[in-house]
Design a protein around this nucleic acid. Sequence first.
RNA 1: GUGGAUGUAGCUCAGCUGGUUAGAGCGCUGGAUUGUGGUUCCAGAGGUCGCCGGUUCGAACCCGGUCUUCCACCCCA
Length: 456
Amino acid sequence: MDIQKPSIPRGTRDFGTIETVRRNYIFNTIKEIFQLFGYAPIETPAMENLSTLMGKYGEEGDKLLFKILNSGDFLSSVSASELENGDSNNISALISEKGLRYDLTVPFARYVVQHFNEITFPFKRYQIQPVWRADRPQKGRYREFYQCDADVIGSNSQINEAELVQIIDEVFKRLKINVTVKFNNRKILAGIAETIGRPGELIPLTIAMDKLEKAGLEKVVAELKANGFSDENISKLKPVLEFIGDTEAKLTFLQSMLQGSETGLKGLKEINSFLDYLKNIKITADVELDLTLARGLNYYTGAIFEVKAKDVSIGSICGGGRYDDLTGIFGLKNVSGVGISFGADRIYDVLEQLTLFPQEVSGGSKVLFVNFGNKEEKICMSYLPELRKNNISAEIYPDPAKLKKQMNYANAKSVAYVVLVGEDEINEGKITVKNMITGSQEKTTLEHLIAEILNP
RNA sequence: GUGGAUGUAGCUCAGCUGGUUAGAGCGCUGGAUUGUGGUUCCAGAGGUCGCCGGUUCGAACCCGGUCUUCCACCCCA
């Protein structure tokens, strides 16, 4: 039999011990903050019915869904003529009815509708699980990655938006990442579309506007023209694209521009309410209104957020928004929700690039007992529980290997103290403790070692 | 999904216009030091040159395909 070189699918990764400990540091930080704000955890399955997932993320999203082949004789449901036609889309619908989740928001909406009777509203939940996208991987883009979501469903108040910004601020403050929180409102974008004379063409408009920062005004205009926007449409839009000023100035400008649009004015009202709540909160991060912020996910209808790291260029590390009717498609009308999603894997990349991971995130033992042989290891075995009882992680080297090898092991695992108990120590009822950081060494007792570690 | 790069030891990389036996640093193992790591010195192990095929007397090197990683679009966390 051939030995095959093992590998994992592209865009997926193994995590070593250091990486896992560091990732847990991110997850734990986020989880702690979520709980601090009263969010409770749920989990949903890795796979959902495709009918739940399809059509929720736009055309692009459907393409990026990982589909799971039906079990058993999956071809039996395909007729010969369909096979002959070779329409992949058609056939895939026949042979696959499950898919891996693409995000956590849509499964959450499904969950809310399905468990409506058990839930007390407003429902604040958090969820930290992997999601999968059949995207082409590159830096900061993986096919399996973790999202850390917090959502409030069943409340229209902008107090939720303000709270989510507060959570974002708190999380990145603790992780020591400088960020800018950009926000916008889909209703305002809809109002702009209306005002320039292209109501209902929100999506092509926003996709083009989104490129302003990256591609520049000319490219945006060119794309709009290609999508059938007239010169008059574009000249009406230009003041928006060219506007320079702070959040307040933008709002004043929009107030007069959107007079004719009911939706647009509603969006303005939402933003003003949101900002009003925010005034009472001390926020460290920069928070700014960005009219070119669009975000692709189709289900957003109100506020939208995006968070960027100031010191690293990696795309957004957190995003979110309000969806007024995501549960509607599953039969539950008039339930509005708003949520944010932290991208743990990108946050990892940011922390690594800025070397912001705390030192103590190592994962090894604090104390290692050297193994000198059968008689000595038994004494060590009796000491170990004493340390662990005091919440000090400790281990004994399992084999009576050469001392050099055991010291090397301690060094590689960044163990702080190595304890040597040989014949001399046994006779004296003491232990020899070597401090691996300073290199100094002294004969002492177990009690003294414990005391030193607990009260440095 | 479109376009462009990339792949040589565990890691980072050298390897001339195709020419005998493919190299370095770091790491690893052993020794100098039989109860002392992180510094030093010596020795050693480790390679289907991503994979498959083609051109050639001869391929790590040229050509085709495929996979990987990366970059730009698209989109996104």
